[in-house]
Amino acid sequence: MDPKAYERYLVPVLFAPLAEALLAAAGPVPGRRVLDVACGTGIVARSAAATAAATTGLDKNPAMLELAACLDSRVRWVPGDAAALPFADHSFDVAFCQQGLQFATDPAAALRELCRVLAPGGRLTLALWCDISRSPGFAALATVLDRHGGPGDLMRAPFRLSDPRRVRALLTASGFAPGRRTTCVISARFPSVAEFFAQQAAASPLAPALRQLSLRTRQAMIGDLEETLADRLDDDGLLFPAESHLVTAARPVR
């Protein structure tokens, strides 16, 4: 995944508005020690850094962190794995994970680590996509990819922790006291269906697989996608909702 393409295409449309909602769901962070896990290019950490006492962003992709460091020097950018956080117990007051937990090899281990590094009473806020059917543009793309022998399962991967009951069970088993769950609806706008496809092909985990397909196959996919999403088009291009759970939890005070 190209960090520059990710920052250019996906952050403004999806992850910046979601970060704003995530911070609002978490509550105030002024004077707090903040951790952003699976931070990517750091939009959540960068947003929190404006008021937090200290902000740390962690990601296992060095290229993402390199770009993040160029974008904001206020944040401490740390390479690492969510399942083995390189921090002492009780190092943070507030933690975030925006659309990253579903990619952890062991989500329960990652949550246990987040609980460990939070101070008693510390808060965790997660953003996890709702079922892919509630993001019709991505659902259509997954179906079209399947139809043409593309990586439809890879398109569905970001949505695999969409069941709130499972997330609640994971949080409880990891030592958290689950709090509130709300739904954030983003209006995802793209200049055209072709541009939507091109941005996903450039900036998402789909990129390597799509590059292996012939130009003819990719063009056929775009044509099919235009027909499938015809009712989502207007004079400004493509518009569809993208729904995400915002889940808060707290480390109990013992």
Rank of each mutant, 00 (worst) to 15 (best):
L71I: 09
F159C: 01
A69N: 09
L114Q: 02
G137T: 05
L18N: 01
A242W: 01
L111F: 07
D131Y: 02
G80C: 03
L67A: 08
R74D: 12
P178W: 10
K4N: 11
R74T: 06
G152V: 09
R168S: 13
R189C: 10
P79I: 08
R33S: 13
P164E: 02
T217K: 09
A109M: 10
P164V: 00
M1E: 11
L229K: 08
R216I: 10
Y6D: 10
A24N: 07
C184P: 02
A82H: 01
R46T: 08
A108R: 06
A198P: 10
T217N: 05
A5V: 06
R232M: 12
R147G: 01
F197K: 05
Q98V: 08
G40H: 09
G57V: 08
R168Y: 02
D131K: 08
L85V: 10
A173Y: 02
Q102E: 15
L22H: 03
P30I: 09
V75Y: 02
P158V: 09
M64W: 01
A88M: 01
D235Y: 03
F159E: 04
D224R: 13
F15V: 11
C130D: 13
D153P: 05
G137Q: 03
L101D: 00
D146Q: 10
T217M: 04
M155G: 04
E195Q: 14
C70H: 13
V11P: 03
D236S: 15
V29R: 05
A54Y: 05
G223F: 06
H148A: 07
G121H: 06
F138L: 15
Q219A: 14
P241C: 06
R123L: 13
G31F: 11
G80K: 07
Y9N: 11
L229N: 05
D131Q: 13
L65N: 06
K60M: 14
L215Q: 14
P208S: 08
P86C: 13
E226H: 05
L215E: 15
A24W: 00
T228R: 10
Q199A: 15
E66Q: 15
S162P: 07
R123H: 14
P62W: 05
T217E: 12
A49G: 07
D231Q: 13
P252A: 03
P62K: 05
V185D: 04
F190T: 04
R254L: 14
